[in-house]
Design a protein around this nucleic acid. Structure first.
Lengths: 107, 107
DNA sequence: ACAATGATTGCATAATAGTGCAAATGAGCA
DNA sequence: TGCTCATTTGCACTATTATGCAATCATTGT
């Protein structure tokens, strides 16, 4: 996974409002419209729309247009897989050569 | 995990430069000093220092001062655990009542 | 005490991101 | 076509963040 993809994923998750939005959507367990999602949020609907778009662009949500409504849904399994992959990569990573050896008697 | 903690964690990971810094440190497999880490990065040492501090405050790094040097190290197992916990929570989450029922014939 | 070294912090500046309002787009319906 | 509703986008504004330089702090050695 490229660093710019990873930072985009994490950036999408870096806003408290988006976390709230995302967990609402996750709890919902089904595809929801923008209006539905933003109905109880303390922000303008346009803001929710932008947050949803950002989460979609990061690969976290799936969007499907039906008529004049857009249904957003958490890409649950993909997100789970991605997080586990990162964890696995961290676990598996074996120390490689750093650019410089320990300075002196470090450790 | 509270939403503000989660957003702080992800915010720390939302910068490409910090991702690079972090993966260098992870590859290194040992505790490194600020100078060591920043030696090959295209940013000022002060910037690297701030990035490291931010990663530490997010619980991603551990810092230990030895003499006049500060050794930063990836809190590998904690980070892995955190990521897996989030993935597990996502997987286990069962649909709860959303604030509104489906609009009409959704789905 | 003084100098030297590694790291952090203050400050100014530039870049990025979040927000609300209003206008625009797109889809269904009379 | 004209109207309404759901969503997106343009725009201005504010807030947050990133950055480099210089000054400061902390520690060690002379």
């Amino acid at each position: 996974m490229a660093t710019h993809e990873m930072s985009r994923l994490f950036k999408a998750l870096s806003d408290p409002g988006r976390i709230v939005l995302l967990s609402r959507l996750a709890d919902c367990g089904r595809a929801c419209t923008v209006s539905e999602i933003s109905c109880c949020l303390p922000v303008d609907l346009s803001v929710a729309s932008r947050h949803l778009a950002q989460l979609r662009e990061a690969g976290i949500l799936h969007a499907e247009k039906r008529g004049k409504e857009v249904f957003y849904e958490v890409r649950r399994s993909e997100l789970i897989t991605t997080l586990r992959r990162i964890a696995d990569a961290l676990e598996a990573s074996s120390p490689e050569s750093c650019c410089k050896p320990p300075p002196r008697d470090a450790r």
